[in-house]
């Protein structure tokens, strides 16, 4: 495993920790989209169907378990924890899941590497992950007073994808037969969706002001 890939995974892990920290310490999920979190839980379930059938490494299995466990616990906190759930901006978080899930499923049935259940679910998870951030970005745009942890969480999530792209470029040049068009294009789309956010993130960082996306 190369350093870019490891950095990508660690950034992803830290983003989840930041979010859980926010939920745990201040007992608040204000500004966090439950829709996006539910989509991530679905992404991990569909992608890690091979967790018990294809052993890759201990690292790989543990990370999969962590991402599955944390994504479901975040959803649980936001839906059922008696204090946390009160801070959920339900009226603002109105993005419809099926607008994203259905097209991704259809696309996965049409464009995949192999027409098998596991492969289609894996492809579906890639397409869905690419767009799963959209409800969160919409909510961010609507929220007037976004706290710093929420902004850092979204930034880390975007940084993870950007690092994965660098990892793919590295692997393409160093590994023979390393060619994954579906993964690359989905990952690229996902990172592009962050473009606007990154732009305003750096602007707010440069000018030392709170981040606010223009309506």
């Amino acid at each position: 495993m190369n350093i870019l890939r490891l950095a990508g995974d660690m950034t992803h892990l830290i983003s989840v920790i930041v979010l859980l920290l926010k939920i745990h310490s201040i007992k608040s999920c204000a500004g966090i989209s439950l829709k996006t979190q539910e989509l991530y839980a679905l992404v991990f379930v569909s992608r890690y169907l091979n967790i018990f059938t294809d052993f890759i490494s201990l690292y790989n299995t543990i990370m999969k378990l962590i991402f599955l466990g944390t994504s479901f616990s975040i959803v649980w906190y936001m839906r059922y924890h008696k204090i946390v759930r009160r801070s959920y901006d339900k009226d603002q978080d109105t993005f419809r899941h099926y607008f994203l899930v259905l097209p991704c499923l259809i696309l996965a049935l049409l464009i995949n590497e192999r027409f098998t259940f596991k492969e289609i679910m894996w492809t579906f998870s890639l397409y869905l992950e690419a767009v799963a951030i959209l409800p969160q970005l919409v909510l961010l745009q609507r929220t007037k007073n976004t706290d710093n942890l929420t902004v850092q969480y979204i930034f880390l999530l975007g940084a993870y994808r950007a690092l994965y792209i660098l990892n793919w470029i590295y692997r393409y040049f160093t590994e023979p037969d390393y060619l994954h068009w579906i993964t690359w294009i989905s990952g690229l789309v996902q990172t592009i969706l962050y473009g606007d956010f990154f732009y305003y993130y750096f602007l707010s960082w440069k000018n030392n002001v709170k981040l606010q996306l223009p309506a």
């Binding site: 790989n60 990370m63 991402f67 192999r114 894996w122």
Partner: peptide, 10 residues
């Protein structure tokens, strides 16, 4: 595609 490597990315 006979030489399919297992998917090692997360």
């Amino acid at each position: 595609n006979p030489t399919r490597k297992p998917k090692d990315e997360l």
